[in-house]
Simulated assay, not measured.
Amino acid sequence: MTGWIGTMLLRPGLMVLTGEVGTTALHAHHTVQIMQSESAFRIGDAHGSTASCRAAVIPPNTSHRVVEGTASATLIHLAPEAAVATALCRDPADAVDVWVRHGAMFSCGPIGMTALVTGAGEPGRSAWHPAVRRSLADLPGLLADGPVRFGELAHRAGLSESRLAHLFSAEVGLPFRAYVRWLRMQHAIRLFAAGRTLTEAAHGAGFADSAHLNRVCHSMFGAAPSHFGQLRLVDELDGP
């Protein structure tokens, strides 16, 4: 298994990695994943089936692995509340050259990466309950202060914990704890790529220790946090 060598763009609800892609172990994450390369790579599912493709859309919570990597690719992770992520999950069969195996994965032709990233920055929140919008806005600040207490979030939003939990899952598409885990993982990767030690990144993102961070990273990305150590943080994507 090789690590990523390239660049990484991090924004709320969005992670974009560009560079060399190595193999990964079987894993699943709560995000929608889009991967594109000019040369073919091979992905596999939990049933042992594999497919060679140059672009793939992986729905949330879908076990998959990279069987054969590629020298240069772009990989996007979209939080489930992003409007474009919602559209991809709703009807992934709109992609061309669809490959479906065990209802698990979808491979497709070239994807407009710039359009996807632009759309990812515009979550479809206008029709959401104000308490959900308030909670999503408050979470990054709470995360930086330490453990996130759902009761405090509900109090800020003016709702009971049970009501906010129901609304959050229904509208964001992800339970609260799973969403917070994604935010913590994203922050830990940012800290590690910026030069912090694994222990510092773990504590800075709210994980119990580096072993805890390592377990979550393996389950979510199929690789150890050290695989992100050679990525260079950027503010904007290169190219059009």
Rank of each mutant, 00 (worst) to 15 (best):
E161I: 01
V216E: 02
A208N: 05
L237I: 11
R11V: 00
E236L: 09
A127L: 15
M113L: 15
G239S: 04
L198I: 10
G146H: 13
A79S: 13
T18Y: 01
V132K: 00
P123Y: 09
L164C: 06
Q186I: 03
A87I: 12
P130C: 09
D235T: 14
A95E: 10
G119C: 12
A28T: 05
H129E: 09
E171L: 13
R156K: 08
V32D: 01
Q33Y: 04
V117N: 04
L164V: 06
G146M: 11
H129T: 12
H166F: 14
T70P: 12
T74V: 13
E152L: 12
E38Q: 14
G119R: 10
L143F: 06
S63W: 14
V117I: 15
F228G: 00
A115K: 12
G151N: 07
Q230Y: 07
S126T: 15
S169K: 13
P59C: 07
R156L: 13
G6S: 09
V132T: 08
G229A: 09
T62C: 08
V216Y: 00
H64E: 01
F207C: 02
A178Q: 13
I34G: 00
A170V: 10
P59L: 07
Y179S: 03
F207S: 02
V66R: 06
V84L: 11
L14D: 03
F228K: 00
G173L: 11
Q36A: 07
A115H: 14
A188I: 04
D238S: 15
G222F: 03
G141T: 06
V16D: 04
T18A: 07
A188S: 10
E68D: 13
G158V: 08
Q230V: 00
V57I: 12
T197H: 05
G141H: 10
A56K: 03
V66P: 03
L78D: 04
R90T: 14
A51E: 11
H47C: 03
G222R: 02
C217W: 01
L167A: 04
A120K: 05
R149L: 11
H155A: 14
D138V: 11
S169Q: 11
V117L: 10
A194H: 11
M15T: 13
T24D: 01
S37V: 08
W99E: 10
H218P: 00
G109P: 15
R184Q: 13
P80K: 08
H129G: 02
G204Y: 03
T199V: 09
G229C: 06
A46P: 04
A137M: 08
L174W: 02
A202K: 00
H129C: 04
H212G: 06
F207D: 00
E38I: 08
R125T: 14
Y179A: 01
F228T: 00
F41V: 06
A87K: 12
P123F: 09
G69H: 12
H227Q: 07
P92L: 10
R65T: 08
G119T: 13
A40G: 04
L142G: 08
R134F: 06
A127K: 14
T31I: 00
M8N: 06
G151R: 09
P225K: 02
C89S: 09
A193G: 01
W182N: 03
H27Q: 07
V132G: 02
A56E: 07
L213A: 04
M113T: 15
I189T: 02
R181H: 05
E200R: 05
M8Y: 05
C108N: 05
V132I: 09
